[in-house]
Write a protein that binds this DNA or RNA. Structure first.
Length: 465
RNA sequence: GGCGACAUAGCCAAGUGGUAAGGCAGAGGACUGCAAAUCCUUCACCCCCGGUUCAAAUCCGGGUGUCGCCUCCA
């Protein structure tokens, strides 16, 4: 498989450090609010990468942190007259609720900053021992001038960065790009004991400390949004490699942004939609498919119109699934017809196309095209009372490929007896050509969210949404 | 100022040297009591100008336009 590595700015063959095993870390949310659609993209994309790597036989160990110590959390706690842990605990739960809706699976580890003070302090001490830090009255900073490779990920050099002007003025720091490893406690803020006095960790150190704890000093894949390249990931490299003396991550993956009217969606700009809001109007699976319908590194625009398009595309996949399940129920043990044989021999080709696409830097858009090709082929070649063997083969492959993308996870509930009876009644009415009654029943059921379709193979039902 | 991305049909979006995938929407047709689903057919001067090449959406140069990072940020 090839992956685009931000470090080298090239697609590279993916070769994990230990054959057959992948260690990956993804920067997780700061839990002070519901997450927005922009946050959802890396969750979905890297969940898909994880699924695909597993599909290809790798044993994947995946860690994604929760940042539960942060100015924003502190502010939120003050606003709501509560404490920081109440805020972070609440939004961790809300994260899982939305992530579940998006079919983003739990990581193997979801470490929290508050539970890793020891490791964080230990990492800072290592940096201190190596002379990479300085202490200004209880604030500990990383001395970026001491890390010669600083800037290697973002391809920035310190002088050019300085010319950029948009740097906060902090007289205390030796260099504008030095960053806090440990912040001295301010009145009313949560704080922990440390060799430098009471305080809390800077933002970047947590990822270094927790990644090393759970995945080791050198990991295979580190991922996140493009805006994290500088300074967050640059700083993580300085911290982790500064402390361990070993390469931190072998492949750096960064997803592109979600735009609203061609402008970045962000919490700071205020032009964002939370996933929770979206879930009131759309099934979240629509959001998942939306994210996968473009390459993960491309910017994508977000709008209701696009979600509607995506919803219709998703319906096509669900229709195909329902169609296959229905036919499978009717299928018989019998030799395949010529058409069915043609289908069966074509199926491996779709799988190959899918794998080829996904192997190319996780090209989910092309992977989906392979799935839609398969759908058309199945739809056009399969008839009632098909060969069970071929139907099962087709169904299994369809579910296998959509499953790798984390799609088609909605469970269908059965119909209750009352509705079953109405459907039977309508069938009787149709047989008697009582169209008025049969149409009325169909309309009534539609009002209840049940759509009936009279296909050549018989009557089928599905739920709206 | 530095670093970087993008520009393909009405809307989304693949394709990085051999003559344009896929989805949505639209049109026509088949099937159907009707509807739906499904199938078939149909729908692209690949931002502009040069260059390289037998051959360019694809490579090179130059434009134009849009966006991102350099400040918390997915």
């Amino acid at each position: 498989m090839k992956l685009y590595n931000t470090m080298t700015r090239k697609k590279e063959d993916f070769v994990p450090l230990v054959p057959g095993e992948v260690k990956m870390y993804s920067c997780g949310p700061t839990v002070y609010n519901y997450f927005h659609v922009g946050n959802a993209r890396p969750f979905i994309v890297f969940d898909t990468l994880r699924r695909y790597l597993q599909y290809r036989g790798y044993k994947v160990t995946f860690a994604q942190n929760f940042t539960d110590v942060d100015d924003k959390i502190i502010n939120r706690a003050r606003q709501e007259n509560t404490n920081e842990s109440a805020v972070s605990e609440k939004y961790i739960q809300e994260y899982f609720r939305d992530a579940d809706g998006l079919n983003v699976r739990r990581a193997d580890y979801h470490p929290k900053v508050t539970e890793h003070m020891e490791e964080i302090i230990c990492t800072i001490r290592k940096l201190e021992e190596r002379g990479l830090t300085y202490n200004v009255d209880g604030d500990v900073y990383y001395d970026t001038s001491k890390f010669v490779e600083y800037g290697k990920l973002s391809k920035q050099n310190l002088e050019e960065l300085e010319a950029g002007a948009r740097v906060d003025i902090n007289e205390v720091k030796k260099n504008p790009f030095d960053f806090a490893l440990w912040k001295k406690q301010k009145p009313g803020e949560p704080a922990w004991e440390s060799p430098w006095g009471l305080g809390r960790p800077g933002w970047h150190i947590e990822c270094s400390a927790m990644s090393m704890k759970y995945l080791g000093e050198t990991i295979d894949i580190h991922s996140g949004g493009q805006d994290l390249i500088f300074p967050h990931h640059e700083n993580e490299i300085a911290q982790s490699e500064g402390a361990s003396g070993k390469p931190f991550a072998r492949y750096w993956l960064h997803n592109g942004f979600i735009n609203i009217n061609n402008e970045k969606m962000s919490k700071s700009l205020g032009n964002f939609f939370t996933v929770r809001e979206i879930s009131e109007k759309y099934d979240l699976e629509v959001v998942r498919l939306f994210m996968l319908s473009a390459h993960y590194r491309s910017p994508i625009n977000f709008s209701a119109e696009l979600l509607d398009q995506t919803k219709n595309a998703l319906d096509r996949l669900y229709n195909a699934k329902a169609n296959l399940e229905y036919l499978l129920g009717q299928a018989q043990e019998k030799p395949a017809t010529t058409e069915e044989q043609a289908l069966k021999s074509a199926l491996p080709g779709y799988k190959e196309k899918f794998i080829e696409a996904m192997d190319d830097d996780l090209n989910t858009a092309d992977g989906l095209a392979a799935i839609f090709d398969l759908v058309r082929d199945v739809n056009s070649r399969v008839k009632a009372e098909s060969s069970k063997e071929v139907m099962q083969f087709a169904y299994d492959l369809f579910m296998e490929l959509t499953g790798v993308l984390g799609l088609l996870y909605k469970k269908e509930e059965g119909l209750d007896a009352g509705i079953e009876r109405l459907i039977a009644e309508r069938q009787k009415a149709r047989k008697e050509k009582n169209w008025a009654l049969s149409d009325k029943i169909r309309d009534d059921l539609k009002a209840q969210g049940i759509i009936l379709e009279d296909t050549p193979q018989g009557v089928k039902w599905k739920r709206t949404n």
